[in-house]
Each structure stands twice: as C-alpha cells, then as structure tokens.
Computed example of a mutant assay.
Amino acid sequence: MKALRIKLHQASANYRKEETAENKMTYPLPPISTITGALHSICGYREYHEMNVSIQGRFASMHREAYVDHCFLNSTMDDRGILVKMKSASMLSNAYTKVASAKKSQGNSFLKNITIQVHDEQLLNEYRQLRQEGNRIAEWKKTEYKNKLAEYKQKKSILALEKKEQEKGSEKFKQLAEEERKLKEEEKQYKINAERYEEEHYKKPIAKYRTLTKSLKYYEILDDIELVIHVQASDETLCDIYNHIDDLKALGRSEDFVDVEDIQFVNLEQDEESYRSCYSAYLNYGDVMNERINTGWYEDRDISGTKYYLGKKYDVSTGKRIFTEKVKVIYTSDFTIDETSENVWVDKEAETEDGQVYIVNFL
C-alpha cells in the first residue's frame, strides 16, 4: 500500500482535551483531527478530503505551564474584579475599555468608591448613574407600577361582574365588552411602555458593563516530542500534502511550532513475521480487541492502555467544524504484532534507531 510517512519534532506542545476547561490537559499524542486538520489547512482544502492516518510517537517529559485566564462574568459585581465596558455587547467581541479595578479581594465598591483604582472617570460616572436608574426603576415597579396594575385588575373585575348581569347581545353588554377591550388594550400598552423604557434606559446600556476576573490556571505541556505520521489517501491528496508540508508550522496551539524532519512516499507491506514497536501510539480499538495487535495482558484486563474517542470526519459547511464521525482508539506503548492483517501494516523502508520497523495501524 502506498502511503506518506512524515517525521516531526516539537520542543513542546499541548494537544488540548476538549472537555477540560479549568486546567487544560493534553492528549499524549495529537488526536486525529489535529493531524488531519493541519494537513487540510496547509493544502488549502475547504471541504473534507478522505484520509486515514496512523499516529505514533513519544515525549521526554511533561510539565505544567501557568497562564492568566480572563473571564467575563454574566453580571457586574460591585466589590471585585475589573469593571469594564464592552465595545459591542451585542457582538462576539472581547474588546473592552477598563473603567475601574478593585484593589482588594473583598470590601471594595465601585458605586461607593471604596478601595478602587479608577481608569476612566467618565465611564465610571455613567455606570453609577445607570445603577441608580436601575434602582429607581426597581423601586417604581414595586410601588407606582404595581399599584397601577392592581387598579387595572380591579377595573377588569368590576366590568366582568357587570357583564354577567347583562344579557348577551344587549346594547349594555356590548358597551361593557367594548370598555373591557379598551381597558385591556390600555393595560397592555402601559406594560409595553414600561418595558420599553426599562430596556432603553437601563437594560441595554448596563449590559455593556461587565466584570472581568483573572485567575491563575495551567496548561499541561509535553516536552521533546517525536511524531511519526503515516497518511493513506488518494494519490492527488498525498501529492498535495507532500508539496505543501513546508507550510506546516504548528501542531496543537499556535505557539507549538513543529519541525518537519523527513517526509517520504513509502510502500507499506504485510507479512507473517512478528514485530515490536518502540513508540507509543493510538491503535484501532477493534484491531486490539480482535487480538490483531497485542498490548500486554494482565490477569484482570484484556488490554493495556487508555481508551479515547477521537473525532475523525467533520463538516465545516456551517462555518464551524462539526464532527460527523468519532473513532474509538487505545493509547498504549510497547505493543506487538504476530503478523500483519487487513488494517495493520509495516513500514520497512526506514528502520528506527533500535533497528525496528514501524507498525502502521490506520484509525
């Protein structure tokens, strides 16, 4: 079988697990979508091109790298964080202007000017006026607005009782029904005007103000990474990858730069000899369970390794990558095969440093 073998090296990288948010954990090897996504990107593909990949490699160590996480709260807090005004609250933009910062962990107040550092006096005054307007509206709704709605309710009850005393279809009944309709319409308009005023004079402008908090979080970082990637695809796709491989700059984060050490077209073979891998790898779950690949057995388990569900095929027609197929894999090391099979091949064209061939298992 014809394939493309790519040997890569990275000084460090984080292949982020999607489900981790607080502290960004990493996969031990780049997942399928990271590899195929990078290859699609360098080739300029806008639609998914069918390709199968084998991913194996190793890293020397892992450490944690601290970073400052910025988080916008859904509401403003008077006593903590950084008060900011968003440039455009209705759009997906993180642009903002700093208004004031709390100096202590507690006991601060932006409204009362207690232990804060002011960055923009004009915006801070605007924020305070809006909060005062919000308090005034809230008080008005508890008193005058509430009493007005109670008045409407009482008038509607009186009209309803008077209607019951009249014969349906009579002139008096029609007159009362018309009065009831007008009263309901007046009540509806009163509520609309109140909501509109609150929306325009408080809710919309105050929504531009947010509390920005900062916290110390961590990346898991792999060090001194060796990767061996085999790609199986159409001849045209393989040639595109080969011709554009120098455009591959990073894998993982944008700062996780990659060195392309070698790229070769190879012919994968099958035979009945046994082989042992000197790398860790993602292995096809079905091939492991069907004992086409041996991962080492323990008394209480059939296989040795960590199971992952990795995204493979995806759709980007909506402008967002949505996975349409995920595959189950086993991450393990020191695995062996007794012979090759339908989805298990060997690459003998470049022996490893240990004098071993590459075991290639497409995912």
Rank of each mutant, 00 (worst) to 15 (best):
N113Y: 14
Q122A: 10
K320F: 08
P30A: 02
T143G: 02
E269T: 11
T76I: 13
E351C: 14
S75K: 13
I337N: 01
E185H: 04
L92G: 05
R64G: 02
D224F: 14
G355C: 09
S215R: 15
I82E: 12
V327M: 04
N294F: 06
I206L: 13
K326S: 13
G286C: 05
V258S: 08
S41N: 09
A38M: 06
L83W: 03
I137H: 00
D262S: 15
Y298A: 03
C239G: 03
S90H: 06
C71W: 06
Y331C: 02
K156D: 04
T332I: 14
A281G: 00
Q175S: 15
N147I: 04
E167S: 09
G169D: 02
L363P: 05
E121T: 04
H70T: 03
Y15D: 03
Q117P: 04
L161M: 07
R301A: 14
K204F: 07
E291M: 11
M289D: 02
A160M: 11
Y209Q: 13
D302H: 11
A194G: 02
N147Q: 13
L363G: 01
S304Q: 11
E151C: 06
V53F: 10
E186D: 13
H9V: 03
I35N: 00
Y309S: 12
A100N: 02
I35D: 03
T76H: 07
C43L: 08
Y202M: 08
V329T: 07
K17D: 13
H9Q: 06
T34K: 01
T336L: 05
D120S: 09
L216W: 14
I35W: 05
S90I: 05
E126G: 10
N147C: 07
E187M: 15
T76K: 09
K307T: 07
L124M: 13
E200A: 12
L183T: 09
P205D: 00
E351D: 07
G355N: 02
H70I: 00
Y45R: 03
A177R: 10
I137F: 11
K182N: 08
L123T: 05
C71G: 02
K24W: 08
Y308F: 14
L176Y: 06
L8T: 00
A89C: 10
L222W: 06
G319F: 00
A89L: 11
S333K: 12
K7Y: 11
I192V: 14
E121D: 09
Y279I: 07
R210D: 03
S254M: 14
K208P: 12
D224M: 12
D79Q: 09
L4P: 04
T340I: 13
Y358P: 01
S105N: 09
Y48A: 08
N94K: 13
D271Y: 12
H244C: 12
N267R: 05
E180K: 03
K214R: 15
I303G: 00
H9I: 01
F265K: 05
S90D: 12
K155R: 12
S105R: 10
E50K: 10
T332L: 08
D256V: 15
I32A: 01
E47M: 07
F110C: 04
K313W: 06
D259M: 10
E179N: 12
H40V: 06
N113S: 09
K153S: 11
A102P: 01
I116H: 14
S105T: 09
R321H: 00
K307L: 08
V316Y: 11
V327K: 14
C43F: 09
L73S: 05
E226V: 12
K146P: 06
A60L: 13
L8R: 03
Q175I: 07
